[in-house]
Every structure is written in C-alpha cells, then in structure tokens.
Amino acid sequence: MKRQLLDFWVGLFVALGIAALVFLSLRVANLTGLDDGSAYSVLAEFDNIGGLKVRAPVKSAGVTVGRVSDIDYDTVQHKAVVTVAIDSRYQFSTDTSMSILTSGLLGEQYIGIQTGSDSEMLQDGDLVWLTSSAMVLENLIGEFLFSKAKEGTGDTEAQ
C-alpha cells in the first residue's frame, strides 16, 4: 500500500480516537462544569450529615452554585464539618443558612442554601452558623411511631 494512503488512514484513526476521548471527557463527564479556580470555600457544621458525599451539589433556589469539597469530623464538638466550594460568581450574606436536603424521597443528598438579609457577604474560610441536619428516614419513622403510640395511650386515658 502507498505510504501516503497508509498515513492518511492511521491519521484518521488517531483523530477519531482523540475526538472520542474529548467527547467522553467533555460531553459525558461534563468536565466543563465548575472549575475550582474561581471558587471560595465556606465551612459549615452539621449535627448529622446523613448520606452526604464529597462532590455533592450545593444548590440555591434549585441552581447548582457549588460543590461539597471536603467532609471532616470535629472531635471536640462531635460534629461533622463540611467544606463547601462556592462559585465566586455567587455571593451569599453571612447569616446564610444551610440545610441538607434530599432530591426525591430516597434520592441523592445535597446542600440547600437559603440566603439571609445581612449586608456583609461570606468570605473565603468563613463558618456558616445556621445549619439544619439531614433528615434520617429511620429517625423520622421512629418519631412517627412514638407519636402514634403516645396518641394511643392518650386516648385510653381519656376514656
């Protein structure tokens, strides 16, 4: 086979392969998303983070504004310390509250941000005070059963 034609086919093959790799990284893995260069980190302490994982989305009004970058345990206060990287395009006031929410009934957990009214904005390394823990389904069922049982005993006492 002629040299030129051979080179052409191999070149085409390599180009196809590289195009496939680029497609996999950009379209399938969505690498174009948030880049860490333009993000600031905020700490938040939770009593219970449930099933929250690193890289879970952080949403405000349903829009993804950041990601969970680290989860640690505070041995003094016995709380979970979550580091959240927020895109620097979005600013939130210092009295912002964070809560761990679940998408759907049994879906993935994410952090929801509810902004406050303070004029001062959160800076890199700040701690968010107002947090509410994850809803743990087992606790919820436990509470429900407990309240049902209490209702039951209340009825018998009334009679």
């Binding site: 093959f13 390599v14 196809l16 392969g17 590289i18 496939a20 790799l21 497609f23 996999l24």
Partner: peptide
C-alpha cells in the same frame, strides 16, 4: 499500546 486506548474510546462513544 497506542491503538488499544483509542479503540476503547471509540467503542465507548459508539456504545453511548
């Protein structure tokens, strides 16, 4: 060694 990863990437994309 050069061909197999490229072929794998093409396989993945066509499969998707």
């Amino acid at each position: 060694i050069l061909s197999v990863p490229l072929l794998t990437a093409i396989f993945n994309v066509v499969g998707i």
